[in-house]
């Protein structure tokens, strides 16, 4: 039932573009501050050994996000 893809669905090595953020409040600002705005290209570069969190390449920096947060970021492949 994945009509809409989220960043959490991105497999290791996958590249996508952010289309919208669903999260709200402080974490929304935090995500925008690290450059996650619609149109930003993101690459999933590494899953942690236990499967979560995952590390993403965002505007030249590597940032780890938990699946709870990455599933609130909508993407276009």
């Amino acid at each position: 039932m994945h009509d809409i893809d989220t960043l959490a669905d991105l497999a290791q090595g996958g590249v996508a573009t952010v289309s919208a953020l669903i999260s709200s409040g402080g974490i929304r600002r935090r995500l925008q501050d690290i450059g996650l705005i619609p149109g930003t290209k993101v690459e999933c570069i590494q899953k942690s050994p236990l499967g979560d969190p995952s590390a993403y390449l965002i505007r030249g920096a590597v940032i780890a996000l938990r699946s709870e947060d990455s599933s609130n970021i909508l993407i276009l492949r």
Binding site: L31, I34, P53, I63, A64, L65, R66, D69
Partner: peptide, 11 residues
């Protein structure tokens, strides 16, 4: 419950 967080993995 666990809260949101972002963790930078520096070069």
């Amino acid at each position: 419950v666990p809260s949101s967080f972002t963790l930078e993995l520096p070069p």
